[in-house]
Design a protein around this nucleic acid. Structure first.
Lengths: 229, 229
DNA sequence: GTGAACCTTTACACAACCTTTACATTGCTT
DNA sequence: AAGCAATGTAAAGGTTGTGTAAAGGTTCAC
């Protein structure tokens, strides 16, 4: 999960970045308002940590402009503890507010409170659940992309189809006849080696990330995508 | 929108209930932990305001038990201002925390921050939002204009439609058939190269601002607008 | 009716892709 | 262990889809 930190205190940024990275988040830092706004608009972050006192563009201004196009969750950080700031930020569309100096654990708890909720809701809304994930291999059906953990595999269309079919049927043998008919749209002819070639190419591409073999050959029967270790 | 308030201070309940009702919420109050938990489990509330100090079952216990089955958003209220309580509540799955005594306006702002987010996510896609922004490309749906950061793109009508469709489906493959039908209003004929030309022209115009390619070709399938880095 | 803006078609080059071929290897059967 | 069929895979065609310049149509405003 990717977070953006906008704070001019580079020391704090580094410290928090390290801490949150250890907690499994991916953190990017920028140190002024302009840069921050640009970055926030250009990508999809799970959450933005936004300092109020910033050079070039203050935190409120960044938030205001961000909210014109995006609804990325924002937690505001500030040294001032006054009600006014707090309410102002929340009314502008911030999701939470943490007064500095703060406890790392509290920050983490608040970050989690928000990301947890988002994760939950988006996983509900996507009833068209379009991701398959088995044994480190992830298939994004909508984007027609496949990943080994986070690393994208550059598969051709047919390779993608073959892999997706195997992963969909993980743990079961899929015959070459099935693959040929479902992926290539034709009956498997006696000396047709296409499927073998496609599987070979897929294996080669997966092997670049040196993980153990996932596609097992069932001699005379077909192929199986291996489930579990 | 329906809220549940669990607090043994009946005076405060009444006061807040009145205030929030005036703000367009529907508020139900109960005054002890057992009742509160029962109520929280029996219905779908948009948000629960939960006091920590409660007779019969304290706030943390109510939250803990609630979280075993439900993910209703919770804001905790408490007289104690210590870090420990705050963190403990958040880690148990609270969404926010307000120390008593609090400002009405702040409570409202926090309630809104959470309900707004939920409302937004559950009504993804359509809604009144008239700007789209993905990966440095901004689409102003109302004005039918497209930008690279702040720089306007002078697209033709069809080019705008194609780009808007791709950005709306950012991260998903959009087939030429879909583009043809939705933008040109006709079935895609076998040797129709119009879509290719429109995409080519859009790319050329975006490339003037020398940013990396945003429209990826999925050979044999369609095009994808790239999300994130 | 002329021009401008736009969409579509045509044509060609090229790159990506799928299949075939050929030979090496594996694993089952006897 | 020999024989054989199934499989692995590098390399070489052959095919198809795509990128794009340029030409040809169409629409619309004036």
């Amino acid at each position: 999960m990717k977070l953006l930190m906008i704070d001019d205190d580079t020391g704090l940024c580094e410290l928090l970045s390290e801490y949150l990275t250890a907690q499994g988040y991916q953190v990017e830092c920028v140190h002024d308002g302009e840069q921050g706004l640009k970055q926030a608009l250009s990508q999809e972050y799970a959450l933005i940590l936004l300092d109020v006192m910033l050079p070039k563009l203050d935190g409120f201004e960044v938030l205001k402009q961000l909210r014109q196009t995006k609804l990325t969750p924002v937690i505001m950080l500030t040294a001032k503890g006054e009600d006014f700031d707090r309410i102002f930020g929340l009314e502008l569309g911030a999701d939470d507010y943490i007064p500095k100096p703060f406890n790392h654990r509290e920050l983490l708890a608040r970050v989690k409170a928000i990301t947890r909720r988002i994760e939950h809701i988006t996983s509900l809304g996507n009833s068209t659940a379009n991701k398959l994930s088995v044994n480190n291999i992830v298939i994004n059906l909508a984007a027609r992309e496949a990943y080994v953990d986070e690393h994208p595999l550059s598969l051709t269309g047919t390779e993608y189809e073959v892999l997706a079919l195997l992963v969909k049927s993980a743990g079961e043998v899929v015959s070459k006849e099935q693959i040929s008919e479902q992926v290539l749209g034709r009956r498997l002819a006696s000396f047709d080696r296409s499927i073998d070639m496609h599987v070979s190419n897929i294996r080669k591409k997966i092997a670049e990330f040196n993980i153990t073999e996932r596609i097992k050959t069932m001699r005379g029967t077909g192929y199986v995508f291996i489930q579990g270790e």
